[in-house]
Design a protein around this nucleic acid. Structure first.
Lengths: 232, 232
DNA sequence: GCATATTTGTCCGTATGTATA
DNA sequence: CTATACATACGGACAAATATG
């Protein structure tokens, strides 16, 4: 092959290894930066700055922006650029409307046992580990994983993807309101454990009631805190 | 821009005036071509051929492809290109799993009357008009509009968009299986009228039962017919 | 309000890798 | 295995919009 070193080789190599496009991988990087809070809601993402930082062309970066815009993590303003999404209070309300409807229906529509609760169990275990270590933001992630696992019980790819997106949006809210992540996330761990127990006991009615109460409380708490921070 | 006349004029003619980007308008064209069956499932969409035909650049066209891929109307295979989506029988099953969960939950979670049933009423009226005129494919559209209106009762933007996408996918199925659109669509008109009546009477339990039976029957019918046509 | 610099929108040409006949 | 067609990604160009002084 070629003997000399060319910067493009690096790009092509990664493409070969990952079996995914450069834009996909750039989107992955930006997605995790947003999820971790390094790019808070409202941040402007400069094509030039990010393109240079990641060593990719503008066209490729714009493709990645499009992917994340479709996931509602970025917003695109014509001739102004892309920004990390800033949710409104109405968005928060809508997210919880979706969660209540789908998560509750997911447990209600469960067939006869046994269900595969391994994902949900793993999420609770993940949360307990995070709590022991005092990793409160990771506890928040674990709680999200638990509720994603509840939706996964429907075994529907489309509902799974919808919930993945909705929960990713929810992280944006968390990054704005949780100055004290422990106080916010810790109480919900025990409630998730309780919901899991009800599911294990095949008590769907109880599980749904617990779930509905959980989501109502979380929504109230979030909406109250969020409206203090955001002008909408 | 350029002073000379270019093929893009056709695009502006077809689309609503005031649309912002070229890619949006290109996506509109392709979306209607797919919905009307001119681009059947499995068709390959060449960047070069379509870009030349519409007089737009590849980058712009790729943006349109992204939009439609996100809507699940196209599939993107790495280094192979984009194709009109070919749904599997499992997709049909999943679509009905989603419909049952969300539509039933939508009527179950309705608050106290009055609800705004004007959209649902309009959809039934649209169906009756289509039936009188013998426009059976339009009756199919009207039936879809009715069920979209049911989901709209949740007043959730996210659920509304999810259902819009799911019902667009369902059209792909219809184009494959409905060689006799009258036989397929006509019986469901009366059932939608019945569901609407139950909703008007604020009988949520009855409405949910009728809805569940409707969806079960439609799924069975479609899955049977579809599996005869598709190798999956 | 105006002029300038920066950023984005759109498009082209080309090099390279990948899939398929 | 070779040849062809196509997709990926880059870099550059210029117009248009925005931001800045």
């Amino acid at each position: 092959m070629t003997a000399e070193v060319d910067p493009a080789v690096l790009v092509t190599d990664r493409a070969l290894l990952g079996r995914s496009s450069t834009a996909d991988r750039v989107a992955d990087i930006l997605r995790s930066r947003i999820a971790e809070g390094y790019l808070p809601p409202g941040s402007k993402l400069s094509e030039d700055a990010i393109g240079n930082a990641l060593g990719i062309s503008r066209n490729t970066l714009r493709e990645a922006f499009r992917l994340l815009t479709h996931e509602r993590l970025l917003v695109h303003e014509l001739n102004r650029g892309v920004f990390v999404r800033m949710l409104t209070v109405q968005d928060v309300t809508d997210i919880y409307r979706v969660r209540k409807l789908i998560e509750c229906a997911a447990v209600r529509n469960l067939g006869v046992p046994p269900y595969d609760l391994s994902q949900a169990e793993a999420a609770v275990a993940e949360g307990e580990k995070a709590a022991e270590e005092g990793a409160w933001r990771e506890l928040g992630s674990a709680n999200i994983h638990f509720h994603h696992a509840v939706v996964a019980l429907t075994q529907s790819r489309r509902l799974d993807e919808l919930m993945r997106g909705v929960l990713a949006e929810l992280r944006l809210v968390f990054h704005v309101v949780t100055d004290n992540p422990r106080a916010f996330h810790e109480p919900y761990l025990a409630r998730n454990r309780e919901i899991l127990a009800a599911l294990k006991a095949a008590d769907r009615v109880k599980a749904e009631l617990l779930l509905a109460a959980y989501l109502d409380d979380a929504e109230k708490q979030l909406v109250q805190k969020y409206s203090e921070r955001v002008a909408s």
